[in-house]
Amino acid sequence: MEKQRNVLQMSGLNVTVKSQQGMVPLVQNLQLELKPGKILGLVGESGSGKTITSMAILQLLNQKAMRVEGSIQLHGRELIGLKEKEMRSIRGKDIGFIMQNPMNAFTPVYTIGSQFVETIRIHTGLTKKQAIALAVDSLEKMNLQEPAEIMNMYPFQLSGGMLQRVMIAISMCLRPSIVIADEPTTALDVATQLQVLRELDRLRTECGTAILLISHDLGVISELADEVAVMQKGRIVEQADVYRLFDYPQHDYTKKLLQARPVLPAHEELSKLVI
């Protein structure tokens, strides 16, 4: 029953930051698990600790200013306290990361191709030629036109939506077991947003990747997630199947979030109108 095991298991995660007022808790007693091929949505307002959680998984938090306690296990292997060198071989290979702002995620002075190939060659023993072939292939899968030309372009020559798809291509080309998508569509316009969500959906069905989808937009969550955890002030206040959460919210905060959805005419009517 190896396949049924959780890809990622977090338990009792606490993150505290040192400040003048003493230790301030950012994330408290967090329990989360990611299952293969499933998407876990993490919602909550700004400042509730969503991004801190994802940074804790990647061990990217400043060790001097913050204290991370508890346990984060990837395939049963404890990540907390792992040496930086070992962590580096995990980031990008086992855990892919898609950031909110694609413009800031690339180095502006290198071409897309060189950044792509660098990632591939660090984690695999492929030759440069093979790496380029793999990169072009994954760009093509992302519905980007003329991938060979994109390889020679600089980040500023691409639009935000294209860059975001390049970032997804990079994070999925090594078939990681987990992808952390931190507000992947917040910076994009609505038409591009749907495209990016489609690619994420394909990633989990084709590669069986477990996705941690962080978003404040319940529209994104209801489109993609299987299970949802609601965060408020560093704690998970409710966790349920996405259908159950939308139909029977338990916690007051979840109810408040659901009420904050903009109102449109009933969706059934709408689909009648459009067809």
């Binding site: 947003q193 959906d201 489109e223 993609l224 996405v242 259908y243």
Partner: peptide, 23 residues
């Protein structure tokens, strides 16, 4: 039409993606 079609659903039962819809 394209803009209207990309409105995200208010409820998961109205999602447009294939994988989650089967459930």
């Amino acid at each position: 039409k394209n803009l209207v079609a990309s409105i995200l659903p208010e409820h998961p039962r109205n999602r447009t993606l294939s994988a989650g819809k089967s459930r």
